[in-house]
């Protein structure tokens, strides 16, 4: 009985707790796949047999990609890196030419590819079209709200998109084989 007086208070040794936690930590660190997928957002049109409302020829911006990934912009060959600027001038039509869209709200980008078009080429063109619109939105945002498009509220973005709507129409792909 006397011996007990000198005993230390009972304690659970927690020294190995850190080791156990480390073990688990390392397991989870190895297993973790931090997903950050990014992608180009597209909205597909519903399937319908209803006839497409006619679009005046001047409001159509025709872009075709052939099986080799080469580009035809309004029946003229064009390099992909010039596409963005070309779309922007066509949409805004600063010289009020009669063969270009009467207003950006009426313009329709018509995109057609071949069944043999490489996906990378297609996506590159799609990316450039979206980039063209994005740059126009950015300019509009600076002019109207003195802010970057990124910082705008949803309603402000919507008003910009209403003035410069992004309408991309995809025709049935051609098949040259």
């Amino acid at each position: 009985m006397m011996r007990n007086k000198h005993r230390l208070p009972p304690a659970v040794s927690a020294g190995s707790m850190a080791d156990i936690a480390f073990l688990l930590l390392i397991f989870f660190m190895v297993v973790t796949a931090i997903v950050n997928d990014r992608g180009i957002l597209v909205r597909l049109p519903p399937l319908s047999d209803a006839p497409v409302p006619p679009v005046a020829q001047r409001n159509l911006i025709n872009i075709k990609i052939n099986g080799d990934g080469a580009l035809l912009f309004e029946q003229q060959p064009l390099a992909v890196d010039q596409l963005r600027e070309r779309i922007k001038t066509y949409l805004l039509n600063p010289e009020q030419r009669a063969d270009l869209p009467s207003s950006p709200t009426r313009a329709v980008v018509s995109l057609q590819n071949d069944r043999a078009t490489p996906y990378a080429a297609y996506l590159g063109v799609y990316d450039q079209i979206q980039a063209a619109y994005r740059e126009l939105w950015e300019v509009a945002a600076q002019q109207r709200f003195q802010k970057s498009y990124e910082q705008l509220a949803v309603a402000e973005r919507r008003s910009i998109k209403r003035a410069l709507p992004q309408v991309i129409s995809e025709a049935e792909p051609t098949d040259y084989r």
Binding site: D37, R43, L44, P46, L47, R115, A116, T117, Y119, L123
Partner: peptide, 29 residues
């Protein structure tokens, strides 16, 4: 989609998605 894949099959899948009434789409890149 692999970048070398031809658009034919991608277009077909897109048509199937429209049949399945899934219209929101991301091309992951």
């Amino acid at each position: 989609v692999d970048q070398k894949v031809e658009m034919g099959i991608v277009g077909d899948v897109k048509t199937e998605l429209r049949k399945a009434e899934q219209y929101q789409l991301h091309y992951v890149a």
